[in-house]
Amino acid sequence: MKNKILLILFTLAAFIPRLAYAQTPAPAPEKGWERVGWAIGCVEKIPSGMVIWLIALGLLLAAAIGWCVYGKKGDE
């Protein structure tokens, strides 16, 4: 049971950044969370260009939200 939970957590952890290199195509495991992990492993690593643009987007959104929120306080 503990191993199952760890497997699920590692699968989810691998899913979020996907910064690792892809594995060479391998036969799909039997059904289960291993298969989900295998599918994640088959995906190519996220392009650096996309990471840069996503970071830029995040910063711009933070700036916009910050302006709207702190700007309101400044007027009080």
Binding site: Q23, P25, A39, C42, E44, P47, G49, M50, W53, L54
Partner: peptide, 19 residues
């Protein structure tokens, strides 16, 4: 632009899955 890079990422994953 980030959405376009998503398509680039999708395209680059074409050969990662077995037949």
């Amino acid at each position: 632009i980030a959405a376009v890079y998503y398509m680039v990422w999708l395209n680059s994953s074409r050969f990662g899955f077995p037949e």
